Simulated scan of single mutants.
Amino acid sequence: MRRRRAARHSAGAGGFTLVEVMVALVVTSLLVAVLMGALFYMYRVQESLQDELITREKVLRTRAWFEDVLSACLPIKADSGLTNVPFSGSTSEIRCETTQSLRPMLGNAPVPVHLSLVRGDRRTRLAYDEYRPGSEAAEGTRFTLAEWEEAEVEFRFADHDGKESERWPKEDGRQEETLPALVMLRIRQKDTPEQVWIVGLRNDPWFEPPRKMPFGLGIK
């Protein structure tokens, strides 16, 4: 009797049955599958967010360059004899002399620049050129600021009365307004809201700058 009881005890304490082992393997496989799925989803979300951040940063940088160049255009008249590139614009290009060149050579020295909308095969790109005293574009200064696919892109100009026009200077505009109050880049794409890049020009000769007293005291 003692031998039989010892044999039964040793057989029961020898390990797991086959069914228990199979159940443990199935549960472990399910946990690993759930964990791998969660990790894969997390990596996909992280990659998507990274791509979105890169795209967003590129757009913000392009808009900042666009605003820097145009906001610093000089209000020089064509008949002043001071420049060969007074501010002029149409729906497809803008020419001006700016103190905020994207590739400055002599600090903030004025540089004639040319922004143009180049339309190709289903794409429109915003091109940037710099000019030197001659009529040729400076070598190495031509590059693309932005590019859109299947989009209608155009420049628009607004005077100090808020009236938009397709050209600058306007034929019926004030002679004193050498610069527009606003420059707008309108971007229309299918199934997306219209985008408008708006730049206010700082060098504005139409309005007198506010007078300031020394030591931060203003005149009201």
Rank of each mutant, 00 (worst) to 15 (best):
E150V: 11
S92H: 08
K58W: 07
K163R: 15
I219R: 15
R44K: 14
A138S: 05
T28I: 10
A38V: 13
E177S: 06
T124G: 05
F16Y: 09
R123Q: 11
T17D: 04
W168E: 03
V111W: 07
E139V: 09
M42V: 14
L185C: 02
A13V: 03
S88T: 11
E47F: 06
V23P: 04
K163W: 15
V19N: 08
H114N: 04
L18N: 08
M36C: 11
E208C: 06
P110T: 01
K58F: 08
A72W: 07
F87S: 02
G120W: 01
E176T: 10
I219C: 13
G200Y: 09
Y41W: 14
L217D: 12
R95M: 12
D68C: 04
L126W: 02
K190Y: 11
E176M: 10
S88I: 07
I94Q: 02
F66C: 03
K77R: 15
V85A: 14
A151F: 06
E150A: 11
P169C: 00
R202P: 06
F155T: 02
L70G: 00
A151E: 05
L18T: 13
K58S: 15
K170T: 14
L35F: 11
E171I: 07
E194T: 03
I54E: 15
F215M: 12
S10K: 04
L60D: 12
S165E: 05
T62N: 13
E171D: 11
P133C: 04
E136Q: 15
V118E: 09
Y43P: 00
V69H: 03
K58P: 06
D172L: 04
R132F: 07
G120T: 03
E166C: 07
Q100S: 14
A72H: 08
W168K: 02
R3E: 13
W168V: 01
V111Y: 09
R5E: 12
P104E: 04
Q195N: 09
R8Y: 03
A181Q: 09
A158S: 12
P110V: 02
A7C: 13
R125L: 14
S10G: 09
T91Q: 12
A151K: 00
L39R: 13
F40D: 14
L115M: 06
G140E: 06
V111A: 09
D121E: 07
M105F: 08
P133L: 05
G162W: 00
